[in-house]
Simulated scan of single mutants.
Amino acid sequence: MSNLARLFPLLDDVQLPDALPYAQMSEWELQFLYLLGRHHLTGADALVELGSGGGGSTYALALGLRENPRFDEGTGRLHAYDFFRVGKGTFASEKFFTSGAAPEDGNSFLDDFQTRLEPFLPFLEIHAGDIWRTSDPDDRTPIEFLHIDIAKTARVFRCVAERFLPRLRPGAVVLHQDFASPRLPWLHHSTGALLPYIEIAGPPIRSTLAFEVTRPLPEDVLRRIAEDAYTVDEKLELISAVQERVDRDHTGKVPFRPVLELAKAYVAHYDGQSERAWKIAEPLTTDAYLAETRADHFAQLRKAYEADRPAPSPAAPESRLRRLVRRAVRR
């Protein structure tokens, strides 16, 4: 059993505050964050949350840290990264505002976030803005905990891969919060590349995959992940390796093997191979879970496939001789 697996039996006993800030994740995921802070993390190295949103996940983790006798609030630091605003490219919800909607004079919910997290501000460092600007490319401080809920685009994931993954050491904990999203296949094939050096905690907690680094991460592997240097075929093989390790989530409701198969289709789709993408995706349309929850994914892939199909050749004009023959036959 992994060090993290011992937390799973404790999930049902966690009682989080009723007034927990809004979060775009399940109660189980919030409970797991609390348990990590309360029973596993120490704060000896940096604790990093990429994509803090409205503060629900930050609050659950920080509450656990505050109740952890091994965590020193004077020296331990929880780093919260986010745009802290709504708008194009931020993937943020207006529910992150206390009022539930953005005010007419601005689109930043940073003040709301700080108010909600006020009890934990002494050990919380907030990094507001584009992660390429708010993260330090020269920072080599080891990371003990990395919560990735920000890699909604390949551009952002490259920043994560370049500036945060190399700072992981054996014993570090990583959470991929969007692991049930087939449109983010970089999460899946990068995990496949890391499999020899990590231990998956157990079944995903709803959409979140948790793993612990068990061996030093090789520089060449990290470089290939950051530079997206794997071929399409290699990426599909890496995702297949993850499928062998991950089945359903801990509630039994999310079937990760077909979810990851659909992620393979997006690997091909992003590479411009629309026919190959649809060939992978079409058999999955009969999967009950995907048909109910990912209909828009199938529509997107089918549309791309049909748009790229060559148009049928126009019929050649009938020759005068052929018309005469056809008339003669009719007689």
Rank of each mutant, 00 (worst) to 15 (best):
F164R: 09
H127E: 04
P170H: 04
P137T: 01
L124S: 11
R133L: 15
R167W: 02
F157A: 07
R155H: 15
H176T: 10
L146F: 00
L117Q: 14
I148N: 11
P142N: 04
W132I: 12
E125Q: 07
D136M: 06
G171D: 00
F123L: 03
R133Y: 04
D130P: 10
H127A: 09
V156E: 13
V174A: 02
H127L: 14
D139I: 03
F179W: 11
I126L: 12
T134R: 08
I143A: 07
R167I: 05
L146E: 01
S135M: 11
R116F: 04
D130A: 15
E118L: 13
R155A: 10
I126D: 05
P122E: 13
V173H: 10
P122A: 08
W132Y: 10
G171S: 12
A180W: 11
V173N: 05
L121V: 01
V173K: 07
P137Y: 00
F164T: 15
P185T: 00
T115N: 13
F120P: 10
A161F: 06
D130I: 08
P119W: 06
S135V: 00
V173T: 13
T141F: 03
P137D: 04
T134K: 05
F123C: 08
W132V: 15
A172Y: 01
L184A: 12
K152G: 09
R163Q: 11
Q114W: 11
R167T: 05
D178F: 04
E162M: 09
P182K: 02
P119I: 00
T141N: 08
R169I: 15
F145W: 10
I126F: 09
F145G: 02
D139R: 12
L168P: 03
R155D: 10
W186R: 11
D138S: 12
A172S: 12
G129L: 00
L121G: 06
L117I: 08
F157Q: 06
F179R: 07
A151E: 14
D138V: 11
T153G: 05
K152N: 07
L146P: 02
P122I: 09
A151I: 03
H176E: 13
F164A: 13
T153F: 03
A128W: 04
E118D: 15
P182Q: 01
F145Y: 09
P185L: 07
F123V: 01
F145N: 00
F120N: 05
H147Q: 11
D136I: 03
K152Y: 12
P170R: 04
I131K: 12
C159V: 14
G129I: 09
R133H: 15
L124H: 03
W186G: 10
T153E: 15
P170S: 02
H147N: 13
F157W: 11
F145S: 02
A180P: 04
Q177M: 07
F123G: 00
A154K: 14
P170C: 01
E125V: 15
L168Q: 00
